[in-house]
Design a protein around this nucleic acid. Structure first.
Length: 860
RNA sequence: GCGGGCAUGGCGGAAUUGGUAGACGCAAGGGACUUAAAAUCCCUCGAUCCUAGAUCGUCCGGGUUCAAGUCCCGGUGCCCGCACCA
C-alpha cells in the first residue's frame, strides 16, 4: 500500500471554503441561545503591513480554545478587528508619500487574507477597524457622555516639544534627549489637554484586582504597583522670614513622618509653584529649571538622571526642634505629579535623599535603629523597621507608633489657621491624558467658542470625521494647520467657532472594542441586550507588554461605561492569558547590517554553525536570540511558512514545545518536526482507514490510553497548557501506531475508535488536517461540527501503580501495587524487600513514611 | 533608577504543586531498507566511575524537611514594563 503525502496546498483552501459555505463560525446576533456562552478574544492587531509570527502564535492559541469550546457545546463568540489608528500610519505617509487612510486599509486587506489563510474560526461578519467613522463616531459619543458625567476634564500637562519641527514628540521619538528627525534638543512644554479621571477609580481598580482570579498573578502585582497606593501624611512646614517670597508655608507628602527628626533638607519639583515664583528673581534658578525641562517627560529619563539640586536660600522651620532650619532645594528628581511636589529629605532612611545629601554635603542623622544595632549610615540608606533614636519624644517607639504620634501631635498644632498635618492616602496612578496633537486618531468632539468656552458637539453631528486632504510633512499639528476643517459654528450660540484639533490616544480605541464586538452594527455604541449577554470576555489572550496600560485603561473605561449606563459590569476580562514572544537568532554582516533568515544558508562545520549570505557567499555572524523585529530583520514571514508547509504545520509548531506564556524560539528544525508529524498522522490514518471494523475488541489498553488522553487534553486546552496537550497527542499517536503495526482483526475496532479520538483531539490545533483525516476515516459531516467526545470514566480508573521505595530519601526499589492498598499491607510488603533487609541488617527502621499513591520512605 | 519576571541534558521543555528529575519533541550517533538520495523504520542518548552497581546532578552559596527543581534567606545572569510605540 502506498499513500500520497499530505498536501496542505490542496486541502486547506477547500476546507476553509467548506466552513465558509456553512457560515460555521458566524455567531448569530440573537442572544436567545440555550447553550452557555463563551467569549474568546485575542488582542486585535495593529495593521502594520503583514502579520508576523507573534500574531500566528496569539491567534492559534485563541482559535484552539474557540474550537474546543464550540465542540464542548458552548455558544462561542470569536471576533476580529483592527486597532487601526496610530503613529506608524503617519510615519509611513511621510516616508512613502501614501495617505495614512489608504496605507491602513491596504494593510488591513493584506492582513485579513493572511489571517484567513490560517484557517482561524473567526466571525468575520463582526469585523471593524477603529479608524472606521462608523466605529469612532460611537467613541465620540461615549466621550460626550463621559464629559456630561464629569469623567473627563482639561488641565495643563507637559509634552516633549521639538522646537525645530514645532511638534509634539512621543517618548519613542526622543532619542538621547533629541528629536528623532530634527535632532534638536527636546524641551518640555505645557499644553492644555484632556484627561480621564482614572485616579478617582484608583481604589476600586486596586481592590477589584483581588477578584480577578483568572488573571496571571504577575499582571495583578504589576497593576497593584502601578496604582501605587501609599498611606502617609501631608505635613506643612513654615518658611523662615525671607526677601524672596510671600509664601508662608510649604506642604509635603510623606509616608515616613516617623523620620522627621532625621530631616536635613527640603526638596521641591522644578515646576513647583514656589520654584516658578522664585525663578523670576533668580536667574541661576531659572537656568536650572530650564535644564530640568530638557530632561524629557518619560519616567525612565527622570529616574536615571544624576540627582541635581539648586539651593534656593529659603529655609523652613523644623516643627519639633526649635531654631533648627532646613534648606529648601529645587531638585530634578522630585515629580510635581506625585503627592504635593515637595518632600522633606531624610538621608539616613531614603536612598535618593542619601545620594542627594552626599552630593550636597548635608547632614545625615540616623533616627531608626536597625535590629542589628548598626546605626552608622555609609552609602546605603536603612529603610527597614526598628526603634526610634535621636528623636526626642519618639525615642524607643516602633516605626508605626512613631508615625501615629507625629501625625497626631502635628494635627493638634495650627499653622496659618489649619492643622499642620493630616493623614492622607496617595496613589502613583495619574490621570489618563488622552489628547494627542496628531492627525491619524479619533477627533475629540468639542468646539472652542469665544463666547461659550468649551462646548460639546451635538450627538447628531457625529461622527466628526477626519478630513482626507492634509499635509503631514510640515511642522505642527496637521489638523490645526488644515485651512478649513477646524472652522465650525458653536453648537450652543451659533457663532463662528473652532474645533478641537487634538485627537484621542489610541488606547481609547482599544479600551472598548471588545464591547463593540457584541453588537458591531448597532446604531448606538452598544446594544445593552447583546452586551449583557456576551460580556465579560471569558478568555482574553495577548502579549505581556500590555500588562499595565491597555488592560488598566480597559478596566477603567468599562467602569466609565457603567457609570454612563452603557454596560452593567465593571470588569471587562474574566480570564486573561499573557503569551510569550516569538524569537529568532539574529544575523549581522561585517558592515553591521542585519540579514533576514531567508537570505542565508546555514552550515554546520565541526559542530559549530556558520551562516553565509546566499547572494555574496560572505560569512555573517550568528547573533543572540531576540524578539522578532523589523529593525533586527530576524523575521520569518508566516506567508512563506504557510505556502511551504501549510497553516496546520505553522499552528502546530507555535503550540508545541514552549509553554505558551514563555518566549518561543523559531527554528527551521522545529517547523520540520511539526511537518513530519503531520505526515506521520496522515500515514497512520490512511493505514487505519483500511481496517474493517469488527464487533469485538480486545485492545483494551489502547482504548484506555485514548480515553486517558481525551481526559487530559480537554483539561490542558481549558487551562491553555497547549504544549502539554501536544505531548499527550504525541504519546497517543505512538500507542496507536504500535497497535496498528501489530494489529489483529479483533483489535481493529479499538484502533479505529482511538484514531477517531485522536483526530478530534488535534482538530482544534490542526483543523484542516483533521477534516481531511475525518473524511478519510469515513465519518460523516465536518469534524469542526462534531461534539467533543466524552471520556469513559470507567476507563480512567487506574488499577495498578508503581510505588517507589526510598531508603533514607534515595530510591532503592519499587512495588507494583493496587493504588488503594491499605498502609499496613504496603508496609509489610516493603519489609519483605531484600534491599531493605540488607540495609536494615537486623535493626528496626527509625521511621516509615507512607504517602498514599505516591511514595514510601524508610529512615534507618 | 523603580516595578515585574525567568533560570532543569547538546536544545525546547515535563514533573499530578514538597514525593521515582529529565515525560513528549528536536538535534546527534549507530543500524535496516534503497543502485543512490529523500522519506520511513529500529536502537542509543545527563555526567563520572573500563563493567556491575553506585556516586554526582535542576544558575551559585546557605537553610528548613524523612524527602527540595518545587519552600525560606543571600547572591549572579538574562528578559519585560515605566504613562505620547502599539
Amino acid at each position: 500500500m502506498t499513500t500520497e503525502r499530505y498536501n496542505p496546498r490542496l486541502t486547506e483552501q477547500n476546507w476553509q471554503k467548506a466552513w465558509d459555505d456553512k457560515s460555521l463560525f458566524v455567531t448569530p446576533s440573537s442572544p436567545t441561545d440555550q447553550r452557555p456562552k463563551f467569549y474568546v478574544l485575542e488582542m486585535f492587531p495593529y495593521p502594520s503591513g503583514r502579520i508576523h509570527m507573534g500574531h500566528v502564535r496569539n491567534y492559534a492559541m485563541g482559535d484552539v480554545l474557540a474550537r474546543y469550546k464550540r465542540a464542548c457545546g458552548f455558544n462561542v463568540l470569536h471576533p476580529m478587528g483592527w486597532d487601526a489608528f496610530g503613529m506608524p500610519a503617519e510615519n509611513a505617509a511621510i516616508q512613502n508619500n501614501a495617505h495614512p487612510k489608504d496605507w491602513t486599509y491596504k494593510n488591513i486587506a493584506t492582513m485579513r487574507e493572511q489571517l484567513k489563510s490560517m484557517g482561524l474560526s473567526l466571525d468575520w461578519s463582526r469585523e471593524f477597524a477603529t479608524c472606521d467613522p462608523q466605529y469612532y463616531r460611537h467613541q465620540q459619543s461615549l466621550f460626550l457622555d463621559f464629559l456630561e458625567h464629569d469623567l473627563v476634564y482639561r488641565k495643563n500637562a507637559k509634552v516633549n516639544w521639538d522646537p525645530v519641527d514645532q511638534t509634539v514628540l512621543a517618548n519613542e521619538q526622543v532619542i538621547d534627549g533629541r528629536g528623532w528627525r530634527s535632532g534638536a534638543l527636546v524641551e518640555q512644554k505645557e499644553l492644555t489637554q484632556w484627561f480621564f479621571k482614572i485616579s478617582d477609580a484608583a481604589e476600586d481598580l486596586l481592590t477589584s484586582l483581588d477578584d480577578l482570579e483568572r488573571w496571571p498573578q504577575k499582571v495583578r502585582t504589576m497593576q497593584r504597583n502601578w496604582i501605587g497606593k501609599s498611606v502617609g501624611a501631608k505635613i506643612r512646614f513654615s518658611l523662615a522670614p525671607n526677601q524672596l517670597t510671600d509664601t508662608k508655608t510649604l506642604e509635603v507628602f510623606t509616608t515616613r513622618p516617623d523620620t522627621i527628626f532625621g530631616a536635613s533638607f527640603m526638596a521641591i519639583a522644578s515646576d513647583h509653584p514656589l520654584s516658578s515664583t522664585l525663578e523670576k528673581n533668580i536667574p541661576e534658578l531659572a537656568e536650572f529649571n530650564k535644564q530640568c525641562r530638557q530632561t524629557g517627560t518619560s519616567a525612565i529619563a527622570i529616574e536615571t538622571i544624576d540627582k541635581k539640586g539648586y539651593d534656593t536660600g529659603l529655609k523652613v522651620r523644623h516643627p519639633f526642634i526649635e531654631d533648627k532650619l532646613l534648606p529648601v532645594y529645587v531638585a530634578n528628581f522630585i515629580l510635581m505629579d506625585y503627592g504635593t511636589g515637595a518632600v522633606f529629605g531624610c538621608p539616613a532612611h531614603d536612598q535618593r535623599d542619601l545620594d542627594f545629601a552626599r552630593a550636597y554635603k548635608l547632614e545625615v542623622t540616623t533616627v531608626v535603629a536597625p535590629q542589628d544595632g548598626e546605626t552608622k549610615i555609609a552609602d546605603i540608606a536603612y529603610v527597614g523597621d526598628g526603634h526610634m533614636i535621636n528623636s526626642d519624644f519618639l525615642d524607643g517607639m516602633s516605626k508605626d507608633k512613631a508615625i501615629e504620634t507625629v501625625i497626631s501631635r502635628l494635627a493638634k498644632t495650627q499653622l496659618d489657621g489649619a492643622p499642620q498635618a493630616v493623614k492622607e492616602t496617595n496613589y502613583k496612578l495619574r490621570d489618563w491624558g488622552l489628547s494627542r496633537q496628531r492627525y491619524w486618531g479619533c477627533p475629540i468632539p468639542v468646539v472652542h467658542c469665544d463666547s461659550c468656552g468649551i462646548v460639546p458637539e451635538a450627538k447628531e453631528s457625529l461622527p466628526i470625521e477626519l478630513p482626507y486632504d492634509v499635509d503631514l510633512d510640515a511642522p505642527g499639528s496637521p489638523l490645526a494647520r488644515h485651512p478649513t476643517w477646524k472652522n465650525t459654528d458653536c453648537p450652543q450660540c451659533g457663532k463662528p467657532a473652532t474645533r478641537e484639533t487634538d485627537t484621542m490616544d489610541t488606547f481609547v480605541d482599544s479600551s472598548w472594542y471588545f464591547t463593540r464586538f457584541a453588537s458591531p452594527h448597532y446604531e448606538q455604541p452598544v446594544d445593552r441586550q447583546q452586551v449583557d449577554y456576551w460580556l465579560p470576555v471569558d478568555q482574553y489572550i495577548g502579549g505581556i507588554e500590555h500588562a499595565i496600560l491597555h488592560l488598566l485603561y480597559s478596566r477603567y473605561f468599562t467602569r466609565a461605561m457603567k457609570i454612563t449606563g452603557h454596560v452593567g459590569i465593571k470588569e471587562p476580562f474574566n480570564g486573561l492569558f499573557t503569551q510569550g514572544m516569538v524569537t529568532h537568532e539574529t544575523y549581522r554582516a561585517k558592515d553591521g547590517s542585519w540579514l533576514q533568515p531567508s537570505q542565508l544558508r546555514i552550515e554546520e562545520i565541526n559542530e559549530k554553525r556558520h551562516a553565509y549570505n546566499l547572494e555574496t557567499g560572505e560569512e555573517v555572524t550568528i547573533g543572540p536570540i531576540e524578539k522578532m523585529s523589523k529593525s533586527k530583520r530576524n523575521i520569518v514571514d508566516p506567508d512563506e511558512i504557510i505556502a511551504n508547509y501549510g497553516a496546520d504545520t505553522a499552528r502546530w509548531f507555535m503550540l508545541s514545545d514552549s509553554p505558551p506564556e514563555r518566549d518561543v524560539i523559531w527554528t527551521e528544525a522545529g517547523v520540520e518536526g511539526a511537518w513530519r508529524f503531520v505526515q506521520r498522522i496522515w500515514r497512520v490514518v490512511n493505514k487505519v482507514s483500511e481496517f474493517e471494523s469488527s464487533s469485538k475488541s480486545n485492545s483494551i489498553q489502547l482504548t484506555r490510553s485514548a480515553h486517558q488522553a481525551l481526559d487530559n487534553v480537554g483539561k490542558m486546552i481549558s487551562s491553555l497548557r497547549f504544549n502539554n496537550a501536544v505531548a499527550q497527542i504525541y504519546t497517543l499517536l505512538n500507542d496507536i501506531e504500535k497497535s496498528a503495526n501489530s494489529a489483529k482483526p479483533q483489535d481493529y475496532s479499538a484502533i479505529i475508535d482511538a484514531t477517531n479520538i485522536i483526530i478530534q483531539l488535534f482538530a482544534p490545533m490542526m483543523p484542516h488536517l483533521a477534516e481531511e483525516c475525518w473524511s478519510r476515516m469515513g465519518n460523516d459531516g465536518l469534524v469542526s461540527q462534531a461534539p467533543w467526545p466524552q471520556a469513559d470514566s470507567a476507563l480512567l480508573v487506574v488499577t495498578t501503580i508503581t510505588m517507589p521505595i526510598q531508603i533514607n530519601g534515595k530510591r532503592r526499589a519499587q512495588l507494583e501495587i493496587n493504588p488503594d492498598m491499605p498502609e499496613d499491607e504496603i508496609i509489610s510488603a516493603v519489609m519483605q524487600l531484600d534491599v531493605l533487609k540488607k540495609a536494615l541488617d537486623g535493626q528496626e527502621p527509625k521511621r516509615i513514611i507512607v504517602v498514599p499513591k505516591r511514595i514510601v520512605n524508610i529512615v534507618i
